[in-house]
Design a protein around this nucleic acid. Structure first.
Length: 207
DNA sequence: GAGTGCCT
DNA sequence: TCGC
C-alpha cells in the first residue's frame, strides 16, 4: 500500500493489484449477478438533463442516483423500483481490511465505462458523514485517474489504475477532487467486450 | 442555479 | 459547494 503524494494529503492510498486475476474474476461474477438484478441505467445531470457517459447500478441498502432533480442516495433502483441487491461478501471483506474502524458500507456504486466514457473532476460529498473513507476497485481496462486536493483549483496529478487496483480516499483526502480522464481501451482481457468497471464503497449515514 | 459536463 |  502506497500513499499517493499530492497536495500534502496523507489519506490517499493506492493498493496496486489488491485483487489477483482469480479474485478479479470472482468479483466480476459478483458484479454480473448484481447487474442481472439491478440493470445498469444511464443517469442524467440534475437541471440540465445531460446524460453521463458512464452507466451505473448499485448494491447495498442505499444506491447513488442522479436524475433531473438531484444527486441522492435511495434504497431502490430508479427504473425497476426494486431494492438494490446486497453488497457481495468479498467487497465487505475489502472494506473491513482497509477501513477497520469505519462502520459498514451502505452503498456500492457500480460505474461501467465504455472506452469513450469519462468522469469529470468531482468530490464525493453526497454522504452525511465523511469519517469513513471511499474505497474504489478497478476492473477491466486501465483508466487514467486524476486526483487533486480538497479545493477544485488545487493542482492535480494523474496516474493509471489497472484491473485489480484499489484506491482509498480517507482522512484528509476524503473530499479530494478526482475523476477519470480516459479509458485505455484494450488493456485488459477481463471483460470480453472491453471497458472498465469501477466499484465504489461508501458509508452514507451516521451510524 | 448548476452540478461528477463543458472541449479534441 | 461554487469557473460557469
Amino acid at each position: 500500500m502506497h500513499t499517493i503524494a499530492i497536495n500534502g494529503l496523507t489519506g490517499l492510498k493506492y493498493l496496486p493489484q489488491c485483487f489477483d486475476k482469480t479474485a478479479q474474476e470472482d468479483l466480476l461474477a459478483d458484479v454480473r449477478e448484481v447487474v442481472a438484478a439491478a440493470p445498469l441505467f444511464q443517469p442524467v445531470m440534475p437541471n440540465t438533463g445531460k446524460p453521463f457517459s458512464v452507466r451505473m447500478s448499485n448494491c447495498g441498502p442505499l444506491g447513488w442516483v442522479s436524475d433531473i432533480n438531484s444527486y441522492r442516495y435511495q434504497p431502490n433502483h430508479p427504473e425497476t423500483g426494486l431494492m438494490w441487491p446486497a453488497i457481495p461478501a468479498r467487497l465487505l471483506e475489502l472494506w473491513k481490511a482497509v477501513a477497520p474502524d469505519a462502520p459498514e458500507p451502505e452503498a456500492c456504486l457500480i460505474n461501467f465505462y465504455e472506452p469513450t466514457a469519462r468522469m469529470g473532476l468531482h468530490q464525493d460529498r453526497d454522504e452525511a458523514m465523511f469519517e469513513a473513507p471511499v474505497v474504489s476497485v478497478s476492473l477491466g481496462d486501465t483508466a487514467t485517474f486524476r486526483v487533486g486536493g480538497t479545493n477544485r483549483k488545487d493542482p492535480t496529478k494523474s496516474f493509471r489504475l489497472s484491473s485489480g487496483d484499489v484506491v482509498v480516499l480517507g482522512g484528509d483526502a476524503r473530499l479530494a477532487y478526482h475523476g477519470i480522464d480516459r479509458i485505455l481501451s484494450g488493456t485488459s482481457k477481463l471483460l470480453k467486450n472491453g471497458g472498465r468497471i469501477n466499484l465504489t464503497l461508501r458509508r452514507v449515514t451516521a451510524p
